[in-house]
Structures are given as C-alpha cells and as structure tokens.
C-alpha cells in the first residue's frame, strides 16, 4: 500500500473532554513535532499511531491511512504495518556483529537488496563522528554510533513510510542530518522532542496538554532560520567533541572564531 498521508481523528484528554485538535493530517515527506511537558500525553499519541488506534485506546483517537480506516491485517501483522519506531531503548542486547544485525533485520522484513550492509553503514557513518565497521559487535557501539545505525536502519532496512521518534538522545549524532535524511526518503516523520534544533526543523508541531492535542503551531520562516543557526552550533559542538576524542587541545580561538552568540 502506498501511504500518502495519515490522519489523526481527535478523541479525549485526561479529563474526558474533547481534545481541541479534532483532525490532523500529515503528508509524505513532512516532519511533524510533538511537544509538551512530561505526562502531557506525547508518548500516548505516538503509541496510538503505532497501534493504528481505532477508538480502542484510552484517548479514543482514530488513525486513518490515506483517509481510510486501515484494514485489520495491517493493524495486526507487524510485517505489514509499515510503521518504524526509532525508540529510546537502543540497548542492543543482541550479541551479534553490525553486519549480522543488518542482514538479520533485512531478512525479518523480507527485504533482499544488494549491498544493503554497505548502504546502511555508509549512511550511519554520515551521521556520526566515530565510524562504524561491519565486523564491530553491537554491544561495543557507543551511544552515538548505535543511534546513527538505528537511523540508517530505519531509512534503508525498515523501509516504512511512517517513522515515529520518541525523543532522540543528543550526544554523538548529527541530529539535523539524521532527520533530513529520514524525510528525504519520503517518509512521514513524527518526533517527540524539546530539542530546539529538531522541534524547529518540523514544519508544524502539536502542543500536548493534559493528554490532549491542544494546538498546532506552524513553524515560521524566522523559526526556520533559528533552527538553521542552532544546527550549525550543534555541528560545531560535535566537531569539538571529535577534537577532544582524538587527543587534541582546544584553545579560545576554537570558540571566538565562531560568532554565533
């Protein structure tokens, strides 16, 4: 099935009142942000989408694909579900190499593609300062390496048109590139985040309150500019990180040359 858009039909907030946002449609290639304080219902919104809820979850929301109720087998069979979740839990309990992981995952998704291992690793290495090699064991990857591998895996292997991201941790990954990369692959990207770089990269964001979708903010061109500058600062900090990693010494000129403040 070619997924062009998803629609969230509003349900209820924690006080059983109708949520403000009654209907929300997100299209292919769009990055959509979800913001709000802890306990405001961000993860529940993500999980409603993940489950393709049909009024059967606490919120009573319904999720439509291309304007229609998705067929039962798409909801039940994870192989057909076509939703990728980039989760906070990337512990890699699996005792296997990066190569085995990619091949095994591609097999589980029924995907046969040439050079898939190289494709994933090359992509991952664009997002992290510490290159990953195919024979590395998953358990030795750093946080940044494993996050980069997961993003590349979602882009190439998961091949799902909808990507849900429930916070992406900061350290060691070029977040801006990572998000662009996912959107470039024609995906609908929904991301829970308070990281200004990521939140402002989204075209729109929904503000959650008391378990309900409270309002939608369109990212202004001024905010887009802020996002671009913040992203440069981010890359710059990442480059300083790499200098430290390689035993270099930082001087004041590393800071003064860059006039961002």
């Amino acid at each position: 099935m070619n997924i062009k858009e998803i629609t969230i039909i509003g349900g209820y907030n924690k006080h059983r009142e109708l949520e403000n946002v009654r209907e929300l449609t997100i299209k292919k290639g769009e990055i959509f942000g979800i913001v709000g304080p802890t306990g405001s219902g961000k993860s529940n919104l993500i999980s409603d989408i993940e489950q393709l809820a049909q009024g059967d979850t606490l919120s009573g929301r319904k999720i439509l694909i291309n304007g229609e109720i998705p067929p039962e087998d798409i909801r039940r069979n994870p192989r057909k579900k076509r939703i990728a979740q980039l989760s906070q839990n990337m512990n890699f309990l699996a005792d296997m190499t990066v190569e085995e992981f990619i091949l095994m995952h591609a097999k589980s998704r029924g995907i046969e593609r040439e050079n898939i291992v190289d494709k994933v690793i090359n992509l991952a290495n664009k997002l992290t300062g510490e290159p990953i090699e195919r024979e590395y064991n998953l358990t030795v990857l750093s946080g940044g390496q494993s996050r980069s591998l997961m993003v590349a895996d979602v882009a190439v292997v998961s091949d799902s048109p909808i990507v849900l991201i429930d916070e992406i941790e900061n350290a060691g990954i070029k977040k801006h590139e990572a998000l662009n990369l996912l959107a470039d692959y024609g995906k609908i990207v929904m991301i829970v985040t308070h990281d200004p770089v990521l939140a402002l990269m989204a075209d729109r964001r929904v503000v959650m309150k008391n378990g309900g979708m409270c309002k939608i903010i369109n990212t202004s061109s001024e905010e887009k500019e802020v996002s671009k500058r913040l992203s440069e600062i981010d890359d710059w900090i990442l480059s300083l990180r790499e200098k430290i990693r390689h035993g270099e010494i930082l001087g004041l000129d590393n800071v003064i040359k860059k006039q961002y403040m």
Binding site: A84, Q85, S87, N89, F101, M104, S108, M150, D153, S158
Partner: peptide
C-alpha cells in the same frame, strides 16, 4: 517494550 523495534523483529524472525 524494553528493546528496540529491529531487535524485536529479529527475535521474531528467529
């Protein structure tokens, strides 16, 4: 719930 989606999918495949 405490592992990543690809890990879940690989487990299922096994």
């Amino acid at each position: 719930d405490i592992i990543s989606q690809p890990e879940r999918e690989i487990f299922r495949e096994r």
